[in-house]
Design a protein around this nucleic acid. Structure first.
Ligand SMILES: [Mn+2]
Ligand SMILES: [Mn+2]
Ligand SMILES: [Mn+2]
Ligand SMILES: [Mn+2]
Lengths: 222, 222
DNA sequence: TAATATTTTTAGACTGCTCTAAATTTAGAT
DNA sequence: ATCTAAATTTAGAGCAGTCTAAAAATATTA
């Protein structure tokens, strides 16, 4: 049985490995865990002793297959709970992450499999992130940044890169949500803003930063 | 913010205060918490400093109104989660207690109020125990032990005194569940066993111990 | 390559919760 | 009233997780 803390460290390493592929540095882990490098070093020794990571002094850490399996199961629980909160309890997508941070540590296989079934085996969470199945397999899809669309092209929003509450609330204001059909009508070269039409209804202007955080599936022209 | 441990101590004191009314003794708390008297003493000082209990050396502990409020909210969460697991996720009544012990520590008023609403504001949990409402008020009902019924009298099962997995599984075997109509047909004086009819369908024999653990609402004869 | 800056580890300490063993207080029995 | 047993507290220590400060290793730069 792992402590919440140990589980969170595994998740942190997973998150780093996800993008950089290389071994997670002590400082990078400390940054995510909001703690000091010294504390991280202590924990790395502990997780290494439990064979959940491979750790070499001064070289960083990497999840072992067992560690990766646990991290994936945490991701699974996290995203299923987020889906539950949105689908069944009418939470909105910016409210669920913090709660899922608590709920992901509830320890019961039976519970999580029943929840999965109750939600009808969702493949994506309220932010469009893939939910690993019971075997740890993710269902990936082709997706591009909204900023990669050309003028006149359209896409359906299938995910957000950044999960920040403030960003999600901003999207709410703009009536942009998962599934929204987005048409790019103009790119202003000067300040790199975009003019887009949301769901064929309202036109809004967004910054490049926002356009880079919206992941869409391109709708092919007829 | 209280730790899980502190919350569990408050629940333990609540449980003792519930039946004995007197101050909870250090040993009684240790027994429930599965720990030593020395640990309890330490924690009593701590909870006392936080004004969650009144504690006097050698005299035992009692919840303050603030402590009682927290304990009640834990009971509320525990019983709502149990109800959720049974009603929505098809768990059976003997499986849910341990899981609720984890879930009751999830910290979010919004979550628990939404859950309450989602379950349609249940007044009793899967074991027939009353669920305090958001203000901490319990809905009590008249109930007597099955053993208090006379020959020929009937009652509906509305609760179980003992929540032991094994006891609940035994009731499953006998097809006895909340709501079951139970008719007492015979009391054997020699070994104090009871013959009862469950739901007008099958006759079973139960011991006095079982009869004392079944709480019923007497059905008045026409 | 040598000096400097950055990263990481170690050393030592602190808090929260736990334990055992010993001391103290209270309750019960004669 | 005194002795004994039971309950409770205190003393002292250990483990998990955290921190700061100092030392060591690695990376960067001149
Ligand atoms: Mn999340
Ligand atoms: Mn998510
Ligand atoms: Mn319970
Ligand atoms: Mn219950």
């Amino acid at each position: 049985m792992l402590s919440f803390t140990e589980e969170n460290y595994l998740k942190a390493i997973y998150k780093i490995n996800e993008k950089t592929k290389e071994r997670a540095s002590t400082n990078a882990i400390a940054e995510i865990m909001q703690t000091t490098a010294a504390s991280v070093t202590d924990m790395m020794k502990k997780l290494s002793n439990k064979n959940l990571i491979t750790y070499e002094r001064y070289k960083g850490s990497k999840l072992s297959s067992q560690g990766a399996q646990i991290a994936t199961s945490l991701i699974r629980k996290h995203r299923l709970w987020e889906t539950f909160l949105v689908e069944k309890l009418s939470f909105s997508w910016e409210e669920v992450h913090e709660l899922a941070e608590q709920l992901e540590h509830i320890n019961s296989n039976k519970l999580i499999e029943r929840l999965d079934e109750y939600l009808d085996f969702p493949k994506y969470d309220p932010h469009g992130d893939p939910i690993p199945n019971a075997e740890g397999k993710f269902t990936l899809r082709e997706q591009i940044k909204l900023s990669q669309l050309n003028i006149g092209e359209e896409g359906n929003l299938i995910g957000v890169q950044n999960h920040d509450d403030q960003f999600l609330e901003y999207l709410n204001e703009l009536n942009i949500k998962l599934g929204s059909r987005i048409t790019v009508t103009k790119k202003v070269l000067y300040d790199k803003t975009y003019n887009i039409i949301v769901d064929n209804e309202h036109t809004v202007q967004i910054s490049e930063k926002v356009a880079n955080n919206l992941m869409v599936k391109k709708i092919l022209a007829l």
